[in-house]
Nucleic acid binder design. Structure first.
Lengths: 133, 133
DNA sequence: CTGGATCCTACTCGATACTG
DNA sequence: CAGTATCGAGTAGGATCCAG
């Protein structure tokens, strides 16, 4: 992508950005099925593994683990193991992770505000395209 | 997802939202490889098909067409054909599409600001995990 | 409760060739 | 210039079983 037009004032396009588009990078990282959901859920504070699984509704243990590992790897989430029986593991956003919740929360709000509009548009489009056939 | 905690004040959780999580819905829609890129690129005004293809860097005609069709279907983009030779087709964001650029632009800015941090965290994580083997 | 290993399916996406 | 049709590879992610 051509970044120069889109960046906020004061931000310069570095060589690294040209080589490796930051947005493309971020999308590759958060563009899977569960990452955004998990980050948004962690927005209000630390959560345990099982609590996340319940809240995310539909995620398998495998994918939740996978998602959390990637977030941890990228420094967006910390993992804290409490030595107890049964085990208790808490996940919490780092500052970078919290910063990410801002646009993602914006996305959530957009989703809520435009759900009906989008659904209606889709219905109209599908109806219109199919007509006459 | 449990939406009640996360919604802005004044927004009520409707039955539709419980049935069909709006965020999940949005992510299914924009979570593919090119949608976010295209929407961000259209942020400054209408663009032609080929201009988009050049700017997106790497998208195939097939995928660009597919992406634009979906955006059109959801009412986020309009498609205008100018009857000329050669053909000229312009794509432009609708108001809903423009509203979407706000969080997406936020995401872009986050990407730029945190690229180095994330890359460093990843490197550290990978190095740390691999050590001793 | 947390999470690793394996297997398997479905779907996404890109390459290529063709059209108006 | 702006698409469409077809095909094949790669991979995301779910099901299941095992373990500390």
């Amino acid at each position: 992508m051509d970044l120069a037009l889109l960046l906020p004032p004061g931000v310069t396009v570095t060589a690294a950005m040209k080589e490796r588009c930051p947005l493309r990078d971020t999308l590759d990282r958060i563009g899977d099925r569960w990452t955004v959901i998990v980050v948004v859920l962690l927005r209000n504070g630390p959560m345990r593994f099982t609590a996340l699984q319940r809240a995310a509704e539909g995620v398998s243990r495998r994918m939740l683990t996978h998602t959390l590992r990637n977030l941890e790897r990228d420094g967006l989430v910390t993992r804290t193991v409490h030595a107890s029986v049964p085990p208790k593991v808490e996940y919490e956003l780092t500052p970078a992770g919290h910063a990410l919740t801002e646009p993602l929360t914006g996305l959530l709000h957009w989703s809520v505000r435009h759900q009906e509009t989008v659904l209606a548009a889709r219905k109209a489009y599908d109806g219109g395209s199919a007509e006459g056939g």
